[in-house]
């Protein structure tokens, strides 16, 4: 079985995001970019499934600018076998990504596709679901444990009331939750090997996918500065302020 993992290049989680001067997006000039943390979890899960002997190949896929190759190399250094980059400078919205991923899945015929539940830049949380719908596959989102048994898999998800257990048949899609696993760091010999692993670059046109945007970003602005809090002397004062000043109760 092949496993396809999607990895996105995003602003590093340690970097403080700043709106660009035109107010059209986040300023990405000269800032550190990394693999989306949820995608690292996806790569790790795919590798664990392979190491357990339940998959033969892990393919890391990314879409976007040429530098996304670095993100794919990170996945290859962790242990993925090969990479595919769909290179474009165009803005990619979740539907376009889902369609591109579906086009690659049609070529590669993976038994399982794992993606992060969301990317930490736009927090869309849509790609996985859209992909499953396009493929007409079963899906389990926000997986916090994954168990494969032959053609079947069991997934637990953290929901408000507790844990939900799902069972579905392969091929299927999973999106990863934060607590699914702790991703490994790459060892030096594997970092070196990753440079020699195959990485195919193609364009959206090669896959005959229409990636045009369906949504338009009108404006991006910094959130309002948080105001300092206030310490109240008693419960009565708190209730009074909530009622008459904040007007929330």
């Amino acid at each position: 079985m092949k496993i396809l993992v999607a990895v996105k290049r995003v602003l590093d989680y340690n970097v403080k995001a700043r709106v660009n001067s035109e107010g059209t997006g986040i300023d990405l000039a000269n800032v550190k970019m990394s693999m989306n943390p949820f995608d690292e979890i996806a790569v790790e899960e795919a590798l664990r499934i392979k190491e357990a002997g339940k998959a033969d190949e892990v393919i890391a896929v990314s879409m976007g600018v040429s530098q996304s190759q670095e993100t794919i190399r990170t996945a290859l250094a962790m242990g993925a076998d090969r990479g595919i980059l769909v290179e474009t400078d165009a803005e990619l919205q979740p539907l376009a990504v889902a369609k591109l991923l579906a086009a690659i899945a049609a070529r590669e015929e993976p038994g399982l596709v794992i993606v992060g539940k969301q990317a930490i830049d736009d927090d869309s949380n849509q790609t996985g679901q859209m992909f499953a719908a396009l493929m007409d596959w079963p899906q389990a989102t926000f997986a916090s444990s994954v168990e494969i048994d032959g053609e079947q898999m069991k997934i637990s998800r953290e929901v408000d009331g507790g844990m939900e257990s799902l069972s579905m048949s392969l091929p299927a899609l999973i999106t990863t939750d934060l607590r699914l696993n702790e991703p490994r760091y790459a060892k030096l010999p594997n970092i070196m090997k990753a440079k020699k692993k195959p990485l195919d670059v193609m364009s959206p046109e090669d896959l005959e996918v229409d990636i045009s945007s369906r949504l338009k970003t009108l404006k991006v602005e910094e959130p309002e500065q948080r105001k300092a809090g206030e310490i109240v002397g008693s419960v009565a004062e708190l209730v009074d302020k909530l009622k008459n000043e904040a007007k929330v109760i």
Binding site: V31, S34, E70, A77, Y185, A186, K187, L188, I191
Partner: peptide, 17 residues
């Protein structure tokens, strides 16, 4: 702060370790 650096992939994994 951003520095032009060599061996970014090595640095990244050392930082994770």
């Amino acid at each position: 702060m951003k520095y032009e650096v060599e061996h970014p992939e090595i640095r990244e994994n050392v930082a994770k370790l």
